[in-house]
Design a protein around this nucleic acid. Sequence first.
DNA 1: CAAGATTGAGTCGTCAATCTTT
DNA 2: AAAGATTGACGACTCAATCTTG
Lengths: 158, 158
Amino acid sequence: MKTSAGTTTRWLTDEQQLVWRRYLEMQRRLNTALERQMQATGELSMPDFGVLVNLSEAEGEHLRVTDLARTLRWEKSRLSHQLTRMEKRGLITRRSCDHDGRGAHAVLTPDGRAALERVAPAHAEQVRRLLFDPLSPEQLAALGAACDAVLSSLDDTA
Amino acid sequence: MKTSAGTTTRWLTDEQQLVWRRYLEMQRRLNTALERQMQATGELSMPDFGVLVNLSEAEGEHLRVTDLARTLRWEKSRLSHQLTRMEKRGLITRRSCDHDGRGAHAVLTPDGRAALERVAPAHAEQVRRLLFDPLSPEQLAALGAACDAVLSSLDDTA
DNA sequence: CAAGATTGAGTCGTCAATCTTT
DNA sequence: AAAGATTGACGACTCAATCTTG
């Protein structure tokens, strides 16, 4: 785009511009591909999958909603909506908390666990194939370092 | 997650797992931060911004809907919905095409251009600050190379 | 029938408001 | 009042269906 007059904005360099657009495109196409396959192999969305993974890794396959929200770094309302949709489909149930009248637990159902196991292998394969296979070990390390650098900078700001 | 028995799935290595989760988190938090600032400084979303940038860069500040969809690599229906919302807010208008009765053009309005110019400097600053400032030149190059590698692999598959 | 484009239904996500329990 | 959680309204995206013109 063209710049407006009289400002001292520091724009992106040409290389940064290019990388930024490529990054956005990669992100979107990767997401689309993953979403589509997950939908096809097990009628799950990526958010569904994230919730199911976390519950399956938890002791007793259940978690307090707050803890789950913190682990996923999701907003409470987003998680609540998500759990409502997943409950409607029988992937999880909600159970009230013993020691805290305000609290609630999300519990993995057998159906939820089954869906997860149905989907997980193909998902792992696809992530490997689409993201990691194309990367050299150095590029993998660089990507990891880049994520870390950006995340800690985000932590400082926000 | 735990693996089911009897399969030969090749899972991700520990390092890949870690990078993948960090990548997902970076992606989401970066998007959230950018969306929020764009909303705050100019009542625009990232998709709005993408459309406005492309129109502003086009000859005469208008594009055929098909061309715009191809440039953005968006599905037609997504773009159509997006244009409807933007038209309702006065950021663009639609004009029918002279030489093809089926065609339509999306045209940047003065309001749309104003919104773009209002938002662009802070957006560029933020992308630089959140993504590029934390990266060394080597990391920038590596990220670019990683995007290219993944994208060309996606091109081969899809 | 192909291509260009729009529409409708359904899911996902955010924000602000709400309700309950501590 | 603060913490835990839910709800409603609205924007964003996908898929399938539709409409119109070539």
